[in-house]
Simulated scan of single mutants.
Amino acid sequence: MTEIIIFIAIGLAAGMLSGMFGVGGGIIIVPALVFFAGMSQHTAQGTSLGLMLFPIGILAAWNYYKAGHLDIKAGLLIAAAFVIGGYLGSKLSLTINQLTLKRIFGALMLIVAIRLIFFSK
């Protein structure tokens, strides 16, 4: 049950940030799956591609699936929550002025970069 909650939270957060900033898989979902769900980097990347399968990454996701690095359950749960989060994030983003939005996005990228560089195992 905890795993399902983590996947739904990742989907909602990634959807909201996607709706707000136009980002998703590489910058949000992959690090979240590594840090919060304990996935390997390869499985996180494969799962991220899997949830965005149509039309974005079907062939790339297929390669990860064949190599055993795609968690289908996680991908489906995150994708469902991503739709809701994307809607909510886009609504929120449209209420924030452009300069503030750029600064929030820049801070988010900096936090993710610092975490990947200094706190990865």
Score class of each variant (00 low, 15 high):
residue 120 S to H: 14
residue 63 N to S: 11
residue 71 D to M: 09
residue 96 I to M: 10
residue 57 G to Y: 15
residue 2 T to A: 15
residue 55 P to A: 05
residue 10 I to R: 12
residue 87 Y to E: 09
residue 3 E to R: 15
residue 40 S to F: 03
residue 26 G to Q: 06
residue 115 R to L: 02
residue 71 D to L: 03
residue 66 K to Y: 06
residue 67 A to Q: 05
residue 63 N to W: 13
residue 13 A to E: 06
residue 59 L to Q: 12
residue 12 L to S: 13
residue 48 S to E: 08
residue 61 A to R: 04
residue 87 Y to D: 07
residue 47 T to H: 00
residue 67 A to E: 11
residue 96 I to W: 00
residue 95 T to F: 06
residue 95 T to Q: 10
residue 80 A to G: 14
residue 94 L to I: 02
residue 121 K to Y: 10
residue 17 L to W: 12
residue 85 G to H: 08
residue 82 F to V: 07
residue 98 Q to G: 11
residue 23 V to Q: 05
residue 11 G to H: 12
residue 42 H to W: 02
residue 50 G to W: 03
residue 42 H to M: 02
residue 59 L to E: 09
residue 27 I to G: 07
residue 112 V to T: 00
residue 25 G to V: 03
residue 80 A to I: 15
residue 88 L to G: 07
residue 45 Q to T: 10
residue 49 L to Y: 02
residue 77 L to K: 05
residue 33 L to P: 11
residue 51 L to R: 03
residue 108 L to T: 02
residue 85 G to Q: 04
residue 101 L to R: 14
residue 103 R to Q: 12
residue 32 A to R: 12
residue 30 V to E: 06
residue 10 I to A: 08
residue 25 G to C: 13
residue 120 S to G: 01
residue 104 I to E: 01
residue 26 G to Y: 09
residue 66 K to Q: 13
residue 102 K to L: 09
residue 74 A to H: 04
residue 36 F to G: 05
residue 103 R to N: 06
residue 88 L to P: 05
residue 70 L to F: 04
residue 53 L to V: 12
residue 51 L to Q: 06
residue 4 I to M: 15
residue 98 Q to E: 11
residue 89 G to I: 02
residue 1 M to C: 14
residue 80 A to D: 03
residue 63 N to K: 15
residue 60 A to G: 09
residue 43 T to D: 02
residue 101 L to S: 12
residue 38 G to W: 04
residue 108 L to R: 01
residue 119 F to R: 01
residue 60 A to E: 13
residue 86 G to V: 08
residue 25 G to N: 11
residue 35 F to H: 05
residue 57 G to M: 14
residue 17 L to C: 07
residue 88 L to S: 08
residue 20 M to G: 05
residue 90 S to F: 05
residue 116 L to A: 07
residue 110 L to R: 10
residue 110 L to K: 02
residue 9 A to M: 11
residue 119 F to C: 01
residue 25 G to P: 13
residue 3 E to P: 11
residue 115 R to A: 01
residue 107 A to D: 00
residue 51 L to D: 00
residue 50 G to Y: 08
residue 106 G to H: 00
residue 5 I to H: 12
residue 86 G to D: 02
residue 11 G to F: 13
residue 98 Q to A: 15
residue 23 V to G: 02
residue 114 I to Q: 00
residue 53 L to W: 04
residue 50 G to T: 02
residue 4 I to V: 14
residue 121 K to P: 13
residue 46 G to Y: 07
residue 119 F to E: 01
residue 94 L to R: 15
residue 33 L to I: 10
residue 42 H to F: 04
residue 60 A to D: 11
residue 24 G to A: 02
residue 40 S to L: 02
residue 92 L to G: 03
residue 3 E to H: 12
residue 92 L to C: 04
residue 100 T to P: 12
residue 18 S to C: 11
residue 15 G to E: 09
residue 93 S to Q: 10
residue 78 I to W: 09
residue 92 L to T: 10
residue 40 S to R: 01
residue 14 A to S: 14
residue 8 I to N: 12
residue 60 A to P: 13
residue 117 I to A: 13
residue 114 I to D: 00
residue 1 M to W: 15
residue 67 A to M: 07
residue 99 L to Y: 07
residue 78 I to F: 06
residue 43 T to R: 09
residue 121 K to G: 10
residue 111 I to P: 01
residue 91 K to P: 08
residue 54 F to A: 14
residue 29 I to S: 06
residue 82 F to L: 14
residue 62 W to Y: 15
residue 49 L to E: 09
